[in-house]
Design a protein around this nucleic acid. Structure first.
Length: 285
DNA sequence: TAGGCCATCTGGTCCT
DNA sequence: AGGACCAGATGGCCTA
């Protein structure tokens, strides 16, 4: 188990309420038990211990999710439990049938407006917060997993430098843009005016992007990347060709991810100052 | 040591 | 009511 996953698992367990795993039920007060029921946790009276879901001790990166799943399971269980409670109310026993309607109404009202002491309310709120924290943690884990998938489909940097979140998004944005431009030009290969078309495409893209400041891709910086998809390289090659000869092939190794040349100069952006120029250019938004 | 990045917690808001 | 989403706050870790 990695340190990170250990931290993750440990934290998740820390964040569960003080009713945590292996808390002896016998040590609980009646109000505790009531609160516990309120918070939809399962427990096992027969074993006199409660748990928040099993763990085989062999955690991996998915363990945080599994913990959440376990808690979700508890939630499901609790829903069943609450449903059972409702059934208990709606389907009275024979002794209940002996009661007059007035009494029944009184009991029903009481069950719906159960008075709770301030300490119980605080505890309930605390548990809701913990559950919300768990969901939020899980949500962020899912987001990070998606981000990791995105990193894997992007060209790798020479030293396997892990892109930060913002760099990944910027890089992906520019990378898609580059591929789009390449496809546009490839679609026009049998046209002798490839150079004109390419420049028009870039101009159009530039105009469209400049019209949308929220995107703000810097087209003038983007071609600084010395990759086969570099519009600059591509376009200059096309410009120098007066015939209908095909543009330089995309010579990216089909087996390995293309390596970006980060040795050329470029303009650093504020939050990519620690990276090389061309890298910053490609990441710039 | 300062700054960047990240994970997590937290309260608010919106939606179902 | 509860869950999803969001943004601000906070603290830890790492690096120049």
């Amino acid at each position: 188990m990695t340190t990170e996953s250990f931290r993750c698992v440990t934290k998740a367990y820390q964040n569960v309420h003080h009713f945590h795993a292996m808390t002896p039920i016998s040590n609980m007060t009646d109000s505790d038990m009531e609160d516990f029921d309120d918070e939809d946790r399962s427990y096992d009276r027969s074993s006199d211990f409660m748990s928040i879901g099993g763990s085989d001790g062999d955690h991996d990166d998915d363990d945080c999710v599994s913990i959440t799943s376990n808690m979700s399971h508890l939630k499901t269980t609790s829903k069943d439990k609450s449903a059972t409670k409702e059934n208990d109310i709606s389907s009275p026993t024979n002794s209940d049938a002996d009661l007059d309607s007035k009494t029944k109404k009184k009991r029903f009202t009481k069950s719906r407006t159960r008075a709770r002491s301030p300490t119980v309310v605080v505890r309930i709120k605390k548990n809701r917060r913990l559950k919300a924290n768990d969901r939020e943690r899980n949500r962020m884990h899912m987001l990070n997993k998606a981000l990791e998938k995105l990193r894997k489909v992007l060209p790798a940097f020479p030293d396997d430098t892990k892109l930060t979140k913002i760099e990944t998004l910027r890089f992906a944005h520019n990378y898609i843009w580059a591929l789009s431009e390449t496809v546009k030009m490839l679609d026009s290969r049998d046209n002798n005016n490839m150079s004109l078309i390419a420049s028009q495409a870039i101009a159009a893209a530039s105009e469209a992007l400049s019209a949308k400041p929220s995107i703000g891709i810097d087209v003038t910086h983007f071609p600084a990347i010395n990759s086969p998809s570099s519009v600059d390289t591509y376009n200059s090659t096309i410009s120098s060709s007066t015939t209908s000869s095909p543009p330089p092939p995309l010579n990216w190794d089909s087996e390995a991810k293309p390596k970006l040349d980060i040795t050329s100069n470029g303009t650093d952006s504020a939050d990519t100052s620690s990276r090389s120029g061309s890298e910053s250019s490609f990441l710039m938004l």
